[in-house]
Amino acid sequence: MAWHAGIKTVILLSFVLAVGFLMIILSCALFANWLPLLVALIFVLAPLPNAVFSHCGADDFSTDYEGSGPADLGRFITSTIVVTGFALPLVLAHSEVIKPAACGMSIVGGSLVYGTILAYTAAFKQEDSEYD
């Protein structure tokens, strides 16, 4: 039961991820300007600092809610990169480097990609916490 639900979730998330990448690549290819492809790279890199720093600074004396400096740094960098991913197409469209349609498509595609990553992480965390 739960296994089937997991498989359905994985299939749905992979479809959403593919649609997100499709929109980003379309936003580049339709207007023959490949700068919005950076958005895909940025959103894929966004959870990386959080993942790298989340296991730093956790020793026997620190608790979960307390938080450590490295974990805070990871959160800071992650949200910086996420805002960068949304701001880059807007800035490019504002200075007329890319078309506004390409800007909207790359933002929608990028948020689909990042939402997929977030949902996948959340699904994994729930499965892990059942065994705690």
Partner: peptide, 14 residues
């Protein structure tokens, strides 16, 4: 709060 601070930081620079 830390996510908000990071977002504000990026927003400022952008």
């Amino acid at each position: 709060g830390i996510y908000l601070a990071g977002g504000l930081f990026a927003l400022a620079n952008w």
